[in-house]
Amino acid sequence: MKEVIAVVRMNTMNKTKKALTAAGIDSMFAHECQGRGKGLVDSKLLSGASQGYEEAIALLGEKGKLYSKRMLTMVVPDKQVDAVVRTIIESNQTGKPGDGKIFVLPIGEAIRVRTGETGGKAL
């Protein structure tokens, strides 16, 4: 079993959920979150700088704000990890900064509270 954590843009959430469901992944958690990547540039500043505004150009080196994102978390059998990762990439890839990140972590055990089932049966 693996836990797949994906941080994606807010506006791609519905597309991502539909694609994951079509790929056979129905169980997931979605969390509202905020964050930023390595590019500490505010998009408004970048736009102003590209238009030649000296004030914007001067501010480009300052840290940017945190952007609203969604964090999806799902635990899947090992055999589904590649399909989940591929689906998330296909649903979110624009080729621009901010497309998101995917993390895959091992899961030691899963237990269904209602029945006590463990392992893959708990999923």
Results as ranks from 00 to 15, higher is better:
39 G>K: 11
93 Q>H: 12
5 I>A: 12
118 T>D: 07
87 T>E: 09
33 C>R: 02
46 L>P: 07
33 C>K: 03
56 A>I: 08
64 G>R: 06
54 E>K: 09
10 M>S: 05
24 G>Y: 12
9 R>D: 00
56 A>Q: 11
29 F>E: 05
112 R>Y: 02
32 E>T: 03
19 A>H: 01
48 G>Y: 03
93 Q>G: 00
42 D>V: 03
97 P>W: 09
35 G>V: 01
110 A>S: 15
49 A>W: 14
32 E>D: 11
50 S>E: 12
117 E>M: 12
96 K>G: 01
54 E>S: 14
51 Q>G: 00
38 K>G: 02
98 G>K: 09
14 N>S: 06
25 I>C: 09
43 S>E: 08
7 V>Y: 08
73 T>E: 15
9 R>K: 03
68 S>Q: 15
43 S>M: 03
22 A>W: 03
123 L>H: 05
74 M>I: 00
108 G>Y: 03
43 S>C: 01
86 R>H: 11
122 A>T: 11
2 K>C: 01
13 M>N: 08
122 A>L: 11
31 H>I: 10
48 G>P: 00
24 G>F: 14
119 G>W: 12
22 A>E: 15
43 S>F: 04
54 E>T: 10
84 V>P: 05
105 L>W: 04
62 E>H: 08
54 E>G: 04
56 A>K: 13
74 M>Y: 03
37 G>Q: 14
62 E>F: 07
46 L>A: 15
82 D>V: 07
79 K>D: 10
19 A>I: 10
95 G>T: 05
93 Q>P: 00
58 A>G: 03
16 T>I: 06
119 G>S: 11
25 I>A: 06
61 G>T: 13
77 P>D: 08
104 V>N: 06
84 V>R: 04
100 G>F: 07
123 L>N: 07
36 R>Q: 04
84 V>Q: 07
75 V>C: 03
108 G>W: 02
43 S>R: 07
76 V>F: 10
101 K>D: 02
100 G>Q: 03
81 V>I: 00
101 K>N: 06
33 C>N: 05
61 G>C: 10
88 I>K: 09
20 L>C: 02
103 F>P: 12
91 S>N: 06
35 G>R: 10
83 A>G: 01
32 E>C: 00
106 P>C: 01
120 G>N: 12
39 G>E: 12
113 V>G: 07
5 I>Q: 13
33 C>F: 06
55 E>Y: 07
19 A>G: 02
100 G>C: 05
5 I>E: 11
76 V>W: 07
56 A>N: 12
89 I>G: 11
47 S>V: 09
92 N>F: 11
44 K>L: 13
6 A>E: 09
64 G>M: 04
119 G>T: 04
82 D>M: 06
69 K>W: 01
65 K>W: 00
95 G>C: 08
